[in-house]
Amino acid sequence: MTVDKNAVKKIARLARIQVSDEKAELLSADLGNILNWIEQLEEVDTTGVEPLASVNEHALPWREDIVTDGNITEQVLKNSPEVAGDFFVVPKVVE
């Protein structure tokens, strides 16, 4: 498996991580190596094997429909790098 520079940039873009051309080059080799190593999984015959997402065997617990939370605006905003009034603030988004 090779992951070329453009592929690295595409993934980095999906993951919202800025990657310079130089770094993309390094990562291309890195990721290629790791993926090559991972490809040993192809040796395993998984025909008809149900994928396992969680080892949990118990049922998903259901919560009662009661309001038990909220009204903690101060806590919610406390760690934010930028706040105006009771809003979080980000660079302007154009739709």
């Binding site: 919560r63 309001v67 939370d69 909220g70 605006t73 806590q75 905003l77 009034g85 009771d86």
Partner: peptide, 20 residues
């Protein structure tokens, strides 16, 4: 999460730590 689903409130009022 257990915060209210009601419409209309001051900003970030019906917000729990889960919602944030």
């Amino acid at each position: 999460s257990g915060s209210s689903a009601v419409f209309g409130a001051s900003p970030n009022y019906h917000v729990s730590l889960v919602d944030a």
